[in-house]
Amino acid sequence: MDIKKQFKEGLVTQNPVLVQLLGMCSTMAITTVFFNGVGMGLSVLIILTCSNIVISALRKVIPNSIRIACFIVVIATFVTIVDLLLKAFVPALSDSLGVFIPLIVVNCIILGRAEGFCYKNGVAASAVDGIFQGIGYTWVLVVMCLVRELLGNGTILGGLSFINDSNGIRILPEGVGALGISLPVGGFLVLACLIAFMQWALARSEKKKTEEVAQ
């Protein structure tokens, strides 16, 4: 088990959203307000870690031919738990995320990690993988939220009840924010720019490495 490598893969080189391009639907749909992004990211982080642990522990019991169905049952269990917990303790978040919490069941990140990692690796490695992949997902959501909320609405950190009554801190004057960025079209644009930036940064570091090796 190589924690350092898993950390780097989850956050950067194998980032679930920016490199593996998984979980696009929720990424695009809920990243309009800071609080939603953090809530969604943490929910996925928790569900991903728990289901990774359980699936990895059961990997020798699950028959190969029906493994996807078994994964889904495990994932759905944890999604239901998180969904009910959110409804009980953070109803505001549960309302604004709406159908996207139940839809975590079919979020490709979780199924993808179950299929691609947990089914072949031990419990401890799977747990670490779940945490780092979840953090990788969360940071992308948070960045998207910050950009889209600032450009689309002119505020940052919106949705937190203790900051300005959930309205966030106003950076741009009222009416300046381009509503289009908060709409789906803006989601595609901001995500595309983030992916392009990521690819540029990765290619650059790769180039540097090969140059160092050559020297």
Partner: peptide
Amino acid sequence: AFLMLSYP
């Protein structure tokens, strides 16, 4: 189209 979406 973008202006129409953003500043209706």
